[in-house]
Amino acid sequence: MMHNLEKIKYYLSNILAIASPSGFTSNIMDYIKEELHLLNVFYYTTNKGSVVVKIDGENKDYIKTFSCHVDTLGAMVKEIKCSGTLSLSPIGGFMMNSIEGENCTIETIEDKNFSGTIQTIKPSIHIHDDARDLKRQPSNMEVVLDEKINSKEDVEKLGISVGDFITFDPRTKFTNNGFIKSRHLDDKASTAIFLYAIKHISENNVKLPYTVNFLFTNYEEVGHGGSSIPEGTKEFIAVDMGAPGTGQNSSEYSVCICAKDSSGPYDLELRKRLTNICKVKNISYKTDIYPHYGSDASSALRAGWDVKTALIGTGVYASHGYERTHMDGIISTLNLIVNYCMEN
């Protein structure tokens, strides 16, 4: 199955450039809706802000739903200190050392933005004897604003307040040999895959045996993105990421199929079908188990939905940090999605 790699990269670079921590996703949802409008496909927005693309198939009673999530890790201003620096409250689960020294933007409630850098409270080895040993935890991290300020009052005059969002510079880089390095590939790689899959199905008039939904959720990183899913869904596949690393079977060059995560095993019959598609269509895949992982499919089950669930996605190295994947894994994930859509 041939694909336009430049179009996939186009979607992905645009998506990665739009800040979207959980709770601050309206801008990226607007972008997704603009692209869907250009594709001339039917979509609707839920009360909570998710976007659903519905593509009718021959069987409209047995509905299959894919989900990806557009929300990412981030933070909020917790306190404006007397020195004019900002303490932060994390959004989502990440290691504090992964954001140390990172450039960031403060997005105020009045739509102003200010740049800054995330540092420890003891950032210089020339000053602090224990700078290296300081525990990297929220109470020891702060944002240093790129403004001439000396006090809490100076910061408040700028319009910055507690509860403002802090977004991290994604530092996106595409290499000539197919690697993509960036923050927030979890789960913006899948978001780009969804847009391209919808484009492929629509423009090629692919006939689907079953109605398929593509659900873009906006609260996965905080645990309730998949708590509301389209009515009539029988099979729910979260498209997120695999996690390569020590002791894992996942790969950046394959679609990863999760057998079990912290929420328990995924549906065996559905996993067998996904695995069989990969074998028959010669799609590179890896099966794996993730002990510290949950997905939109997990939250759908916790919410009480009577659905069969699965979890797939391209392998993403250094998840919840400065991440990396490869176009091979993205294409394998795309091919599995499209072939599953066409499965009788």
Rank of each mutant, 00 (worst) to 15 (best):
M241R: 09
G242L: 06
M241C: 15
Y219F: 15
K260C: 14
S263G: 15
S250M: 00
N249H: 12
S262C: 08
G223Q: 10
Y219A: 15
A243C: 13
G242M: 00
S263I: 11
N249S: 14
F236D: 06
Y219G: 03
V255S: 05
F236C: 05
G247A: 05
C256K: 01
G264F: 04
P230G: 03
K234S: 14
G245C: 01
G247M: 05
M241A: 13
N249P: 04
Y253P: 01
S251K: 11
I229T: 09
G264R: 02
G225F: 00
K260P: 02
F236N: 04
E220V: 01
Q248G: 11
C256M: 01
V239F: 10
N249R: 11
S250E: 05
G226F: 00
G264H: 03
I257N: 07
V222H: 10
G225H: 00
E221Y: 12
A238C: 12
N218K: 06
D261W: 05
Q248V: 10
S263N: 12
G245F: 02
S251W: 03
A259F: 09
A259S: 15
I229N: 05
S251A: 09
P244S: 07
H224I: 12
E252R: 14
A243G: 05
P244A: 05
S227W: 02
S228G: 08
Q248N: 13
V255N: 01
Q248P: 02
T233P: 03
D240Q: 03
A238F: 06
G232K: 09
E231R: 10
C258Q: 12
A243L: 15
E221N: 14
D240H: 04
F236V: 01
S263F: 10
D261Y: 07
G264V: 03
I237N: 02
H224S: 13
Y219R: 15
Y253I: 02
P230I: 00
P244I: 04
V222Q: 09
V222E: 13
G242E: 00
S228T: 15
N218I: 13
A238S: 14
V255D: 02
E220A: 09
G226H: 04
D261T: 04
